[in-house]
Design a protein around this nucleic acid. Structure first.
Lengths: 173, 173
DNA sequence: ACCAAATGGAACATTGATGTTCCATTAATG
DNA sequence: CATTAATGGAACATCAATGTTCCATTTGGT
């Protein structure tokens, strides 16, 4: 709910959750508390999903495909956390830099070192591209004529080859 | 300003513009009026920039490169118009579908027909990818170690080739 | 210098979201 | 069935953003 609209009213959220606004306040002291709880929950879910992808193992390309799959699976959490820059704003200096930044950057650097990924762009750029394609795939799936299960393959395909017609050596399954 | 934060306070906007809040109200009857004016202005600027790219001429790849350049040049307007889905929400049925959808889709279809672009994904998907890369490039330029002038080339490079190490036949200038 | 227009600040009413309190109703547990 | 906890609704105070009015000041043109 907060992922779809970060400024949703507490009344709307309560309605969407099927509870009264009073009950919502009983569980979360104030709006900040609710947001914090949602952030913690989302980070945990994302961490778990990404950890399951074991991106430090196997070939970088295969690892990246597993990562995309894992990210799309928790797309709603990603949209919530990173869709509105204000969500994670107060957390920059404090603790976690971002839930999954470090292992992803490590994977990208490994892929560049092994010759799998474009070495002429920064790892940070590749990371943003990854994120933005996952976001786009998850967010605009229906607008792009993509079925839910088609998101992952479309994201992987475009992430790996861009929009050019694939060359034989880069063709994937 | 509204592009950075769609929910910016009128007082903040007035401050950023270097005028008093009263003066702001004198030019725009209410917040809706201000938003509308900003939308009109942004659409005009985008239309002008994209028209200058003449994407119906030349090879699809060259046209797409010109389009990316034109889009990055009006990145702030794009961020404002499409960054928050609420901005253009009330305009769906009324008039313009979106300022530049049709010519871009036409370019993509032409590129697919001529064998330049991946024919196995929908034009709508390619369009979203294009938009999301431009958005990412414009928005996160500094976080990705990209100088302002490096955005266009990074976006084009990744859009065309993905994150794979480029093959000789696909290498660009 | 003078006048007209525009500006910015202050004060005010209004609105919507929020947080709180109280109470009736419902669900769960013995 | 009786007791207890949880729930949802209503009412209220608070606060921030908004829109309005009024007035002193500044700006620009003559």
């Amino acid at each position: 709910m907060l992922g779809r609209d970060y400024h949703a009213t507490l009344a709307d959220i309560a309605d969407a959750a099927g509870v009264g606004r009073t009950t919502l306040h009983r569980y979360f002291s104030d709006r900040t508390g609710l947001i914090s709880a949602a952030i913690e929950d989302s980070i945990a879910a994302i961490d778990e999903s990404v950890a399951g992808a074991a991106i430090d193992q196997g070939s970088p390309i295969e690892a990246m495909r597993r990562l995309v799959t894992a990210m799309v699976a928790v797309g709603d959490r990603l949209v919530f956390l990173f869709g509105d820059p204000r969500v994670l704003e107060g957390r920059g200096a404090a603790g976690t830099p971002a839930p999954l930044d470090d292992p992803v950057i490590a994977l990208i650097k490994r892929g560049q070192a092994e010759g799998a990924f474009d070495p002429d762009v920064t790892p940070a750029w590749i990371q943003r591209v990854l994120w933005s394609l996952v976001y786009t795939g998850y967010q605009d799936a229906d607008a792009c004529g993509l079925a839910r299960h088609g998101i992952v393959s479309a994201v992987i395909r475009t992430l790996e080859n861009g929009i050019h017609t694939p060359t034989p050596e880069h063709r994937q399954v």
